[in-house]
Simulated scan of single mutants.
Amino acid sequence: MNQVIGVSYVAPYVVTGKYISHRKHTCYGLTLTKADNGLDQFQTCVSQSLQDATAMVALRSVIARFRPDIVVTGTSIRTKVEHTIWAVAQKLDIRTFAMIDGWAKISDRFPQKLSTRAMPYRVGVVDQQPCGVGARQVPHAQRK
């Protein structure tokens, strides 16, 4: 909410740009433009660490509210979404199950060099082909 001389008002802004800044810290930003005046713009930026912390709090709140017996996820490539979900579930003592829907780029789904990332309790595959690949490339995989 904006204020002019003590009087509150709401000014509608629209997102007119997105950017990522790689300086001292990675920053995810938006350019906001006032709906009725294209010259009235400002930029806002959220650091990677704040964005990650916000995601953890939001996910923890949702998972804690539902208290599932198990959380089932996918295994996206080059993203921390699933790893964040697995970490939140682990902290709440909830088991996780990650499905690998394809055998390509297994090492990108479970990066071994990032040992600080959480891993799922169990990993499943949609067919037998990725099973052997996954058991060799997922750091803690147990083949059954």
Rank of each mutant, 00 (worst) to 15 (best):
V14F: 00
V4W: 10
A98N: 06
P130K: 06
A87P: 01
L92I: 01
Q51W: 08
S76N: 07
E82G: 15
V126F: 05
S115A: 12
K144G: 08
Y19S: 11
V81H: 04
I106C: 03
P120S: 08
C27E: 11
Q90N: 14
I100R: 03
K24M: 09
L59E: 07
S49E: 14
L114R: 13
G17K: 04
C45R: 09
Q128G: 12
H83S: 12
L59Y: 09
L114Q: 14
V133H: 00
A53N: 13
M119D: 05
V46Q: 10
L59G: 10
H140R: 11
M99L: 15
V71N: 05
Q129V: 10
N37Q: 08
V123F: 11
I20Y: 00
C27M: 15
P120I: 00
D108P: 00
Q129E: 13
W103V: 03
T31W: 03
V71M: 03
G17F: 06
A11V: 11
G6V: 06
C131L: 12
A58R: 07
Q129L: 11
P139M: 04
V7Q: 14
V72T: 07
P68E: 07
V46A: 04
A98C: 13
R117E: 14
V15W: 00
T96Q: 08
I85R: 04
L39E: 15
D69L: 11
Q3A: 04
R65L: 11
T33R: 12
L114P: 02
G124V: 08
S76I: 04
K105R: 13
F97M: 12
S49I: 02
N37R: 08
Q112W: 03
A141Y: 11
A64R: 07
T44N: 01
I94G: 06
R60D: 10
Q90H: 14
V14L: 05
Y9A: 03
V57F: 00
K105D: 14
A118V: 04
T75L: 09
L30T: 07
P111Y: 01
R117K: 06
F97L: 15
D101Q: 06
Q43M: 09
E82L: 01
A53K: 13
G29R: 08
Q3L: 09
L50V: 01
G38W: 01
A55Q: 08
V81F: 14
N2R: 10
D101P: 03
I5F: 10
G6N: 12
M56Y: 13
K91N: 15
Q43S: 15
V62K: 11
D108N: 11
P12S: 06
D108C: 03
Q90W: 00
R95F: 05
T26I: 11
A11P: 02
T16E: 10
R67M: 06
K144A: 10
S8D: 12
G102C: 07
Q90R: 15
F110T: 00
D93N: 14
V57M: 02
I77C: 06
M99T: 14
T33V: 05
I20V: 15
A87S: 14
A118L: 04
V10D: 13
A98F: 06
P120G: 06
S21H: 10
V4E: 09
K18E: 13
I106M: 10
G6K: 07
Q41A: 01
F97S: 10
R67A: 13
T26Q: 05
V125E: 01
D36S: 14
A104R: 15
D127T: 10
